[in-house]
């Protein structure tokens, strides 16, 4: 058993749209291995290709999701703000980041421990299902937005 998490961290997680209304025990479990972090503008929250072991709940600020290749400039494809999340690579093998996440302004986020959360969810399938019911729509929405971007809606 891990040490009791700080109460304010539990509250922050419980208030975040991803966890709001989920079993308080799940929230407490997630909080037990979480930490709150500040990022300065320009700081990387995630680097493409490195091990993805965190799920970030954005509380304040703005994070750019960037893709790029050696032969072309880095492209921001989405920005993520308060109430939103960064990262699902921690959930999906081989657990590596698929993009860079960079703070574009001072950003505060709760960093959840991916492997620990994965284990908790697999040990409590009811929690796991409830969590996925929240998490999958976020992925679906990202996919939908990516499709709209592919439509290039501003090209006439």
């Amino acid at each position: 058993m891990s040490a009791a998490p700080p109460p304010d961290l539990v509250g922050e997680i419980a208030n975040h749209p991803l966890f709001a209304g989920l079993d308080p025990k799940l929230v407490r479990s997630a909080a037990s291995t979480a930490q709150e972090r500040e990022f300065a503008a320009g700081d990387l929250l995630a680097r493409e290709g490195t091990t993805a072991d965190t799920l970030l709940l954005i509380l304040r600020g703005k994070v750019a999701l960037e893709v790029g290749a050696a032969d072309r400039p880095t492209l921001t494809v989405q920005t993520v703000g308060p109430g939103e999340v960064v990262g699902w690579s921690w959930f999906v093998p081989p657990f590596r980041w698929r993009f860079d996440a960079r703070a574009v302004k001072p950003t505060r986020a709760i960093v959840l421990n991916g492997p620990a959360l994965r284990e908790t969810l697999s040990r409590h399938p009811a929690w796991g299902f409830a969590f996925l019911v929240r998490f999958l729509p976020l992925i679906a929405e990202r996919l939908e937005n990516t499709r709209i971007q592919l439509l290039d809606i501003h090209a006439r």
Binding site: A64, L65, T79, N145, I148, Q149
Partner: peptide, 8 residues
């Protein structure tokens, strides 16, 4: 430094 994402 602004937002990125489709208008919706």
């Amino acid at each position: 430094y602004g937002d990125v994402g489709v208008v919706t």
